[in-house]
Write a protein that binds this DNA or RNA. Sequence first.
DNA 1: ACCTGAACACCGTTCAAGT
DNA 2: ACCTGAACACCGTTCAAGT
Lengths: 207, 207
Amino acid sequence: MVRSKLDPGRSYHHGDLKEALLKASLELVSEKGPHGFSLAEVCRKAGVSVAAPYRHYRDKEAILAAIAVAGFEQYYEGAAAAVAASSDKTFGALSALATTYVNFAIANPSRYRVMYGSDLSKAKFPELYATARRAFDVVFCVVEKCLIENGKSSENTYAMSVSMWSHCHGIAMLCVDGFLREIAMDERIAELVGLAVQSFVEQIKST
Amino acid sequence: MVRSKLDPGRSYHHGDLKEALLKASLELVSEKGPHGFSLAEVCRKAGVSVAAPYRHYRDKEAILAAIAVAGFEQYYEGAAAAVAASSDKTFGALSALATTYVNFAIANPSRYRVMYGSDLSKAKFPELYATARRAFDVVFCVVEKCLIENGKSSENTYAMSVSMWSHCHGIAMLCVDGFLREIAMDERIAELVGLAVQSFVEQIKST
DNA sequence: ACCTGAACACCGTTCAAGT
DNA sequence: ACCTGAACACCGTTCAAGT
């Protein structure tokens, strides 16, 4: 492969292999799922040797972490947009957010599972948790607004936000792990999200 | 190894290797987690060759399924006992059930992840989903009682039960996957379970 | 600096061969 | 019927060697 030295974006053999590997990884994980995902096949997809990734990522875990970070960022964009697009900034925004959350998981089941189920420690991948935290803050802000606008103390905002997150995460996880498909509820996900939001609303109104 | 022919419980070399492999698998998955779990190491633990398991389990997936089934059964026992021990058979039982659910996950994090995150299809492992369904039925019955005793229609029992399950599952999953530990909420799990139950109660009372 | 080729340890699975 | 030994394809990781 001959490359011009006047082509600054491209390095020796490949030119931004790091990005190409991430792209191939995102594709492969969507195709084969987290369990079928292998670094070797990513390399084949990217057309490089199996040793090539180690110049750009510490190990397989680091690539999974990159997938996870990309996932949280992608979700964050959608979540922020959903809240921004909502005319009602309290319960309406919360409903839009919950729907966005679960829809993201359903649209990207394998990525979603990598995001949460890869045993990626905070010590090794602080960026991952920072990105996840940024995504969580969207819920936090909406919940806080719900509490304040309804004349409630906001001291419980954190716990209430985690509770709402948990509820959506439970729906999303059961769904992507196949436990709602198998128990015959796949076309009623919207109903479940509705119940989650409703129970949250009733809880705020009653306390 | 010499064995008497008068010893009927023990077969050729090992004697109930199937059970021994399951036991070793349960230990190993608890030690190393779902990602560190390997069939080869299970064989080393059980003192047999790597080919030995294939006489008793179709493949690695089948052993994971056996772990999952054992997990759902163990949880089921605890859940049924918790409901039975509760004097209040409606919201009190529901609260006990939710606590039992999340505590099971926290006490057996790796097993819990195998139960839900192993991509075990209903087609290949119908027994797994039958056992999971049995566990779900405990929630279903309690939720039904909650609705009826509070003068509500029970036509929504199924969706409400799945909603409650999702909420607990979300808390449990975020916890075992390390997302509550990292966001500093590990000693407030009971509070989260309390909020989940409370939101459910308010929802029933208000509809 | 970036990538390849070859090597190593490890794993899942199969199959002929042993008891 | 149950298990072993050997084999095969595959994977993650390392490292000397190439450009």
